[in-house]
């Protein structure tokens, strides 16, 4: 008697809760998706259609101007938008891959080699994770300008190679992922240290490698403060700084400089590569982003 009663409440409870949970989730998803929906809709509108249109802010107008907008991206200011996109790719790929390679090498060394000064090095590394990187931008600018490197691609790429958090993540991961016995067995068989790294360590570090690569690539792709400070030549800007300039000019007023349709379409095109990358690499980052937080 009592058991059936409790079973009933047990089975009813979860269902009610599930409805509540799903409603909560739907509301949350709505919040996260609506701005993107607005961007998709906005990029199908012409410059004037963004202000006055049949569809309102959250629906398509009768006029569908997406292809015209994309074409205009190729012609406006000599197609500078695509130069910005290329620059963003160069910065993100060179900065992301470079900093990941450095982080994997350093994290492996800190996890698997015993040498004088290792603990001190690791403490410094942990301390540097707490240094706000933007605090370094202004002195970096002054240093680079004394070296005559301002306004070159190197001014963005070289500082982007620094990723203390990447080293930390690889080190935490490598401690458990690479058994010492495996390395020692390799050494007994006469394998050199480089060979051990490439043949034994690297394959085991793959999840950490992919995660750090995603984190650093996203960080470089999103970077705004550094390129804003060290670049003047419009031809060298990444797409983030470039679109922001269009927006600032459009807001400042002059009629011919108002390119709202290019801002919306350009913004949409610029976010597609990363969204596609994240969807394609799901199985890596879903577990990997929590590296270092689970013990």
């Amino acid at each position: 008697m009592t058991t059936t009663a409790t079973q009933q409440t047990l089975s009813r409870r979860p269902r009610q809760r599930r409805i509540g949970s799903h409603v909560f989730l739907l509301l949350a998803v709505l919040y996260f998706v609506v701005p993107l929906w607005w961007l998709v809709v906005g990029s199908t509108k012409s410059n004037s259609g963004l202000f006055v249109g049949s569809g309102g802010a959250l629906w398509f107008n009768d006029e569908f101007a997406l292809w015209d907008n994309v074409k205009q991206l190729f012609t406006y200011q000599g197609g500078i938008y695509w130069t910005w996109m290329r620059n963003s790719f160069v910065y993100a790929i060179v900065g992301g891959v470079g900093s990941t390679v450095l982080a994997v090498l350093a994290g492996y060394a800190l996890a698997k080699y015993r040498f004088r000064g290792r603990n001190l090095y690791f403490s410094m590394l942990l301390g540097s994770v707490m240094v706000p990187l933007t605090a370094l931008t202004i002195p970096t600018f002054v240093l680079l300008s004394q070296l005559g490197m301002i306004n070159t691609m190197w001014a963005v790429i070289l500082p982007s190679l620094l990723s203390p958090i990447g080293v930390y993540l690889v080190r935490v991961y490598a401690v458990d992922a690479i058994p010492d016995e495996m390395l020692d067995a390799g050494r007994v068989d006469g394998a050199g240290e480089l060979r051990l790294f490439f043949r034994v360590a690297l394959p085991l570090l793959r999840p950490a490698f992919v995660t750090v690569l995603l984190l650093t690539t996203v960080a470089t792709w999103n970077n705004f403060f550094l390129p804003l400070a060290v670049l003047r030549d419009p031809q060298l800007l990444p797409v983030t700084v470039g679109i922001n300039q269009w927006q600032a000019l459009s807001n400042a007023g002059a009629g011919g400089e108002q390119v709202w349709n290019l801002i919306t379409t350009g913004a949409l095109v610029s976010i597609l590569p990363l969204i596609v990358a994240f969807l394609a690499l799901q199985k890596y980052w879903q577990g990997g982003l929590s590296l270092g937080s689970i013990k």
Partner: peptide, 19 residues
């Protein structure tokens, strides 16, 4: 929903703020 809630992370802060 897990994916959709995560998507804004893939969007640069500049573009997010612009939007």
């Amino acid at each position: 929903s897990r994916l959709l809630v995560f998507v804004p992370y893939a969007i640069p802060a500049v573009i997010g703020a612009l939007m």
